[in-house]
Design a binder for these strands. Sequence first.
DNA 1: TATAAAATCAGTAATTATTACTGATTATTA
DNA 2: TAATAATCAGTAATAATTACTGATTTTATA
Lengths: 134, 134
Amino acid sequence: MKALNKSKQRQAILDFLCTRKDHPSVEVIYNNVRDVIPDISLGTVYRNLNLLADMGTVKRIRGLDSVDHFDADIRPHQHFMCTECGRVEDIFLEDPSVVTAMEDQVRRHHDSVTGSDIYFYGRCSECLDKLPES
Amino acid sequence: MKALNKSKQRQAILDFLCTRKDHPSVEVIYNNVRDVIPDISLGTVYRNLNLLADMGTVKRIRGLDSVDHFDADIRPHQHFMCTECGRVEDIFLEDPSVVTAMEDQVRRHHDSVTGSDIYFYGRCSECLDKLPES
DNA sequence: TATAAAATCAGTAATTATTACTGATTATTA
DNA sequence: TAATAATCAGTAATAATTACTGATTTTATA
């Protein structure tokens, strides 16, 4: 897989994504990048996000809402998803060795284990405030 | 959330799902259930899978192919996804305590952690045979 | 059992998310 | 600078999913 050429559209998408920690959807990315490049098309946003994800420059996250979300932070980390509002937050485990230990466990039965994704579920603090009970 | 009434369509969907360990998609479920109930509609399959998933009777899995897959096995377990062919296999960790240990780590920063999903990625044995190198 | 109320259905239309296609433009290479 | 390749905007098409409607079935109750 060879490197991509430069394009201001792709750069603008990546620049925007780097400013966000909340794993925006394609729709959100599209709307925001249009502030910079008003005539960018939705197809271009999709195509470039897919290219960037294929290259490993960004990470695709499939949330609870069945639309793709993207993250420019590709350091190994996990995610917390609010089952109430769908918000996705980053989790950096204090002791990440448990993850590699798990992968090693799995590797005993599957020759090839190249990585893992871990999603934690619960209610985010904001939703807990809104609905203390139930 | 109250219990569902009985319906032969819903039962047929659930019966079929219980026979499968490969986390079929809605499309696959639909085609197979039609062997039993030829005039069942795709909308009914969707609606019932969503109802069953909401009740916790089945588990929804979002794979690499962005279509929903379903699993009638709701025991806590993990999944292995082949990055080559998309196949989803069950993983039962020999030492599942690492999962609860991780959840406890997360619970220090998020008051409410109700569960987690773990996906391992790699190539399944079948795809490894096909493409030993690369 | 008969009947009324509620749940569920099939069929289909509509919506939403995503991908594919086309000819024009832009970037890279030599 | 000219040739080649990559990328673009715009749009059409596809695929997945949900919503709606009036008919049917199931459940609860008398």
